[in-house]
Design a protein around this nucleic acid. Sequence first.
DNA 1: CCTTTTTGGAAAGTTTGCTTGACATTTGCA
DNA 2: TGCAAATGTCAAGCAAACTTTCCAAAAAGG
Lengths: 67, 67
Amino acid sequence: MGGSVKNRLKVLRAERDWSQQDLAQRLEVSRQSVNAIEKGRYDPSLPLAFKIADIFGLAIEDIFSRD
Amino acid sequence: MGGSVKNRLKVLRAERDWSQQDLAQRLEVSRQSVNAIEKGRYDPSLPLAFKIADIFGLAIEDIFSRD
DNA sequence: CCTTTTTGGAAAGTTTGCTTGACATTTGCA
DNA sequence: TGCAAATGTCAAGCAAACTTTCCAAAAAGG
């Protein structure tokens, strides 16, 4: 059904007071993609995971984890 | 055209004396996928990147890097 | 209340990851 | 030399990641 990795996006966004839209713009992806990934409807690609890690200043493993 | 992340798969395989086939079996993906990823023809999915990291006992960032 | 922002998600289309199957070339080694 | 294992790549097809457009509901803040 959905993605196979968990993520901490909601909390990380909240800590920075970023809306899904804000994050989407920084990532240069659509807001729907951010929403879908955050809700676990599907997994981000590896390049996108790198970009997300970059923007939050964390390692991929600190944001995503295998379920 | 191709994938956007670099990888150290060839060296990591060599250190363990694993063929692409050996690695493919451990990852439960096709040999062609391992070859394509290793040659940078496309990027692995995030779940597959996690599995690769797991099998080599390294962090994703120690195997793949943003180009 | 009322309005605006934010979030959740459906539908349809494109691109990319991955599959199987096949074949050619290279490498290793008896 | 020669045979086997390993590598590289193509083609066709399915699945997953992403897009845009659109709508509905929740949350936030007057």
